[in-house]
Design a protein around this nucleic acid. Structure first.
Lengths: 230, 230
DNA sequence: CCTCATATCTGGTCATACCAAATTTGCGCA
DNA sequence: TGCGCAAATTTGGTATGACCAGATATGAGG
């Protein structure tokens, strides 16, 4: 779990210490602030630039470019604790629905015994967590990603993995409510049964209803997405 | 168009010059090979590591980790001219279908006059290209991405942008055939009309049929995806 | 208050050096 | 010949310092 803490810290720092025009402190200042060499700062900045979080202009400075940030960048932000624009969260949930309802359908055709076994393991782990009064953040993520994995489309899995990283800090909050964890778990069981029966339509419907709960939760939390227009 | 050529070249070089266990040449060797300082190589490697293309093990070496590469990494590969695993291409096309059919439906509800104007501009540009006997690679990408943009979901757009970067080298080949360009263009027109009529079902159906053509093309080119199982 | 020359700042790049752990080499022993 | 272990080497991780040239800020002069 060591990860690259400088990268996360730097990303967070840049957002707190940028002037109106999005200009951040210079490499030399950042190096001094974090107590590392300029080389280390440059390495981290290279990554942030590849993620389109910042733009480095020669002989001028480093500027934030949030509007163009890639999805991988958003995951990094979430990890670093940088608050994401609520609209982005709402958009992510919508995209997640598109992905996972389709994944449920495809998984009905393509899931192998290995996938089913993993799902059973995850459900068992969930039971244990529930019995212990703990939240299901990790198990929820594992369950959903295993279904995506069952589509046998690795690109699909790569894409979906990203927004679960984004939710790393948020899911535990969502599942802090025991009633929510239990209901989610029971819905997972029904989805698993539909997958096992290879009933594509049922799996889609159940997944849709399941995700609707999450969508409503976020909607209620961040208010109307009407401001997203424009 | 300058881009970071060292990054692309390095990625390509690592694939050509790695030993059986995936170990690549050392930083010092790479620096000498490309005629740059070790610092530059490290900056590029930091990005490749962030993309999960390589793993740097302290005091040991740099190792390829293709299986875990992110989608952004795949786009980088494509740009660098590194041949992608045909299975990945097939998987990407499948994912694209999932995305864009849904995007067409959503766009019917959310497209604004600005979107329609952009689509008209792109179609006009396509006509011009066709008249000049040129391929429609760029216009095809712009058309499809504009529909995704019309969903007003920026995360959606970010995700979809990635695999158009991946196709940068391939699309021109696809559209080299004039008959294909013309048919594609005519299908675009029909899709535009469905969007304008805000007929979600029709737009989905047309988009599905349109993408089916591309899927067949790739399928025929790379053979049966049966080997993707397992 | 505006203009323009000058001093300063900034990213881009390179060369070197040291560290400590991983890896390889090779000597000596069985 | 084969094995084991210590010494030499390689490797990534990190820091320091320097130079370049263009962008930027500063300030004197009109």
């Amino acid at each position: 779990m060591k990860e690259n803490s400088l990268l996360s810290d730097l990303a967070a720092h840049l957002f707190s210490n940028s002037s109106g025009n999005g200009r951040t402190p210079s490499e030399r200042e950042l190096a001094e602030h974090f107590g590392v060499s300029r080389g280390q700062v440059r390495e981290a900045l290279a990554i942030l630039e590849a993620m389109r979080i910042v733009e480095r202009r020669a002989k001028s400075g480093i500027y934030l470019t949030t509007t163009e940030a890639s999805v991988e960048a958003m995951a990094l932000f979430a990890r670093a604790g940088v608050p994401l624009d609520p609209i982005l969260i709402y958009e992510t949930v919508e995209l997640r629905k598109i992905h996972e309802i389709k994944a449920a359908e495809l998984a009905c055709d393509r899931a192998t015994e290995e996938n089913y076994q993993h799902l059973r393991d995850i459900l068992a782990a969930s039971e244990a967590k529930l019995a212990a009064g703990e939240g299901l953040a990790r198990e929820d993520r594992d369950f959903h990603l295993e279904i995506v994995r069952a589509t046998k489309n690795s690109v699909f899995h790569r894409v979906c993995s990203v927004y679960y990283v984004m939710g790393e800090h948020r899911l535990p909050i969502y599942f802090a409510e025991p009633a929510r964890s239990r209901r989610s778990h029971e819905e997972h069981i029904r989805i698993y049964e539909a997958l096992l029966a290879r009933d594509g339509n049922l799996a889609q419907a159940l997944m849709s209803a399941h995700l609707q709960g999450a969508e409503s939760y976020w909607k209620g939390l961040i208010g109307s997405p009407a401001t997203a227009a424009g």
